[in-house]
Amino acid sequence: MSTSSSAQAALALPVLRVEELEQLQQLGIESGDDIVPSLYEILCSDSVERLQSMQKGLKDNDLRPVGAAAHSLRSSCAALGGDRTSRLCQEIEMASRRSDKQEAATLYPILEREMAAFLTAVEAFTKRTAKH
């Protein structure tokens, strides 16, 4: 798959699959925890840390931390319904594994941009549900 096509495939996915957050919210209610705002806060700090790790790896020409950070962020995004960012992380992880720095470097800014959109969407969800 060419760089553009893998990015295109990821971008075709929703920024936020809201059902995932709704389900977590429901589970939180059952166990007496308001979990989604906490998850949002963790995601904010975690994503910043992982993105920095990726950026540094790309700069240092060391794809190992790039792949590891992408792997972790991929799980986090998927757990919260961030299908698009999760897929972009997966593509970066795979590119890192096959030492394709160019692909990883091309996808990274797209991930950075989409991560911001994802965080905004999650924040909006927490605010919306908090009003209820």
């Binding site: 977590l24 589970l27 975690d46 972790s72």
Partner: peptide, 16 residues
């Protein structure tokens, strides 16, 4: 799990 989000979501799922 070293990923806080995964740790937290699994925690909530299992505690529920």
């Amino acid at each position: 799990d070293d990923t806080p989000i995964s740790l937290m979501t699994l925690d909530i799922i299992l505690r529920a």
